[in-house]
Amino acid sequence: MSIFFTLLAKIIPLYFSVFLGFISTYLLKCDKETIAKILLYILAPLIVFNATISVKLDLQVLFLPISFFIFSTILAFVLLFLFKKIYSDNTANLLAFSTSTGNTGNIGIPLAILFLEPKLVDIFIFSILASILYQNSIGYYITAKGNFSAKESIKKVLKLPVIYAFILGIILNLNGIKIPDMLFSYSEFLKGAYAILGMMLIGMGMEKFRSSNSFDIKFISFTLIIKFILWPLATLIFIYFDKNFIHFLNNDFYMIMFLFSIVPLAGNTVTVATILNVKPEKMSMAVFVSTIVSLFYIPLVLYLYMN
């Protein structure tokens, strides 16, 4: 029970940010599209650049974001094919995009700090580049394709600065160039701003819940099953085969991978849905429900994994 209450204390402030987002739109009439653009075009590229240039690169460390990015990409296109048989509109695109990633930043990082050693926390943060890059490239393309042609969607992806921030960070890292010490504290402020605004955006999307058909039980059920059953199951299968046959990673990396797989839906999916105008209210509700479920789900699966 101590694990549960410790985790609960870490997550509760996130719900306060969701509430602030709801108030800012409902009472202050703030524009959620502006916040979404700040997250996507300013904060995300800066965070990606900082993490990419700072981490010590080796094969095991590189394997984590690369493997998760590939898994997310394959899963997204498979789910898009399947959901197109169920939905005739862009709901299929939104489902495929959102369930192939997770909230590895706002919830994943506190989990990593709670359960991992400091050096492993840095590796976990580097691994979440897989989520950020997927959400801002392949995921963005799949979601945009619900409203735009393939050519138009690719053009939109190529305009995203996070891709170029990642490439620049890798180039500088490989050449031994690091961020000056005086900017370290500023990078922490960026992470805090990204976490708070990202969760606020979920609350801002809830402002229209009462006037739209946002609570779609079938949509939410699909997201929960894929995120909370399929993701950890696929990760455990990989861990089993690597531990018994391949022997490429160790138990520390297994724990990083498992934490990565059990987080709820990503708040950034609301950002993309808002910018592309693909049912952002429905996406906000699904993210909020999955975050509530994760309060009870995460302590349970961690207990089972550790034992």
Rank of each mutant, 00 (worst) to 15 (best):
S24R: 07
L129K: 07
Y141V: 05
S54D: 09
I202P: 01
E152Y: 00
I38W: 05
L40H: 11
K85V: 07
I225W: 05
F184N: 11
F238S: 01
A51H: 05
L57Y: 07
H247E: 08
A193V: 08
T143H: 05
L183C: 13
K155C: 01
D58Y: 03
L230Q: 03
A44E: 04
I113K: 14
F238H: 03
L8G: 13
L197S: 15
T52F: 07
G198L: 05
A266E: 02
F77T: 05
L201I: 13
T91Y: 11
V48F: 12
L295I: 13
G203I: 04
F238T: 04
N277M: 09
T6I: 11
F222T: 08
N213I: 07
I196F: 10
L259H: 06
L304V: 15
N277Y: 08
N244Y: 08
I217Q: 02
F16N: 02
S294I: 13
F63D: 00
E281C: 14
I202G: 00
N244F: 09
L39V: 09
A193R: 00
M182P: 06
I275C: 04
P110T: 08
V263R: 01
S221H: 12
I196P: 00
G176W: 10
P45L: 08
L43N: 05
Y240W: 14
P65G: 03
L57F: 08
L7V: 05
M306D: 10
I74F: 11
R210V: 11
L302M: 14
K85T: 12
I246R: 07
S185V: 12
L120Y: 15
Y140S: 00
Y41I: 06
I179C: 04
S17A: 10
Y15C: 09
T269Q: 13
Y15H: 05
T101D: 06
L129P: 03
I298V: 15
I275E: 06
L129S: 10
K151A: 09
M283I: 12
T235V: 13
I70E: 03
P13T: 03
A193K: 04
